[in-house]
């Protein structure tokens, strides 16, 4: 998918946002806020960067994707549906009995999910294990992990970070969705993270802070870091807005894990569509 244009990717990101919001609306449950903040880099990964094959989701040489902040599953599900891992109708089954789209990603039930996640702080360790296996087996695949800024309060994140550095996992690229909010309020009030970019840097990562809603910057940064074989894992700290793209959800803590009603849904879809037609 490397020949997709930036403009096409921006459109795709809006479509993924629409699909994620639609999913949460149908389910009347789920996490729209963080799904929307992560939408742009998830789009860049699934539609340009990652070497994956919807026809063969368990292909041994594929790039891996670990959604450590598993509650924002709707945005990954949207990517999987648009990318053809599952039929598009699946989006109407979020959180339903027998659906591949479980409340949180489930590798047993959904093609394209490389490992189940949902309990915060744990996915990065799994990504480190996958990246280490790639090094041991001399494979070229890369592992992309998405963690949240609230999630970075979990101690295990830093256990995983130190091991990624010890094992020189330059095939690990972490996207940190720094949207500044967590379920109880602003991250700075609940438990200040201080500067996450500096923290990861101090642990030995190559880090960069970018605008997580600028497709251009996301792509540039990926191009900059993705093939650097310097023995250092990468962490791209993304300044993002929780609820990005839907005005009444933006930066509102209450939309962390709430479904829109009919009126709100229509408004959200209309606003997102305006972005498409812009």
């Amino acid at each position: 998918m490397s020949n997709i244009t930036v403009e096409e990717l921006k459109e795709k990101a809006i479509q993924l946002r629409q699909t994620a919001v639609t999913m949460v609306y149908h389910a009347q449950s789920g996490h729209p806020g963080g799904s929307l903040s992560a939408a742009d880099f998830v789009t860049a990964l699934y539609f340009r960067e990652m070497n994956v094959n919807p026809e063969d989701p368990e292909w041994a040489d594929r790039d891996r994707f670990v959604l450590s902040k598993g509650h924002v599953a709707p945005i990954q599900y949207a990517a999987l549906a648009h990318r053809g891992f599952v039929p598009m109708e699946t989006v109407k089954t979020l959180r339903e009995y027998k659906s591949p789209f479980q409340g949180h990603p489930d590798s047993k039930k959904c093609p394209g999910i490389d490992i189940s996640t949902g309990s915060l702080g744990q996915g990065l360790s799994c990504a480190v294990g996958m990246a280490l296996a790639g090094k041991l087996d001399k494979k070229d695949y890369r592992v992309f992990a998405v963690i949240g800024d609230g999630e970075a309060q979990e101690g295990q994140i830093w256990e995983a970070a130190q091991s990624a550095v010890k094992y020189k996992l330059d095939n690990l690229i972490v996207f940190l969705d720094d949207n500044g909010l967590q379920i109880d309020g602003p991250t700075d009030e609940i438990m200040p993270n201080l500067d996450l970019e500096k923290k990861f840097e101090a642990f030995g990562f190559t880090t960069k802070r970018i605008d997580g809603h600028s497709m251009e910057e996301i792509l540039e940064t990926l191009d900059e870091v993705k093939n650097v074989k310097d023995g250092k894992p990468k962490c791209i700290v993304c300044n993002t807005i929780k609820g990005k793209g839907v005005s009444f959800m933006e930066n509102v803590v209450g939309w962390h894990g709430k479904a829109p009603n009919e009126e709100e849904y229509e408004k959200a879809m209309e606003e997102l569509a305006r972005g498409l037609n812009a």
Partner: peptide, 28 residues
């Protein structure tokens, strides 16, 4: 030695890394 990992005093990470390793066919 290539089949041995030592994560230090970080048991939670040990379990998570083992899970990640196992997804590629390793038996940790």
């Amino acid at each position: 030695p290539k089949q041995h990992v030592n994560v230090g005093i970080a048991e939670q990470n040990a379990a998570g890394m083992a899970a990640g390793l196992s997804t590629t066919g390793k038996i940790p």
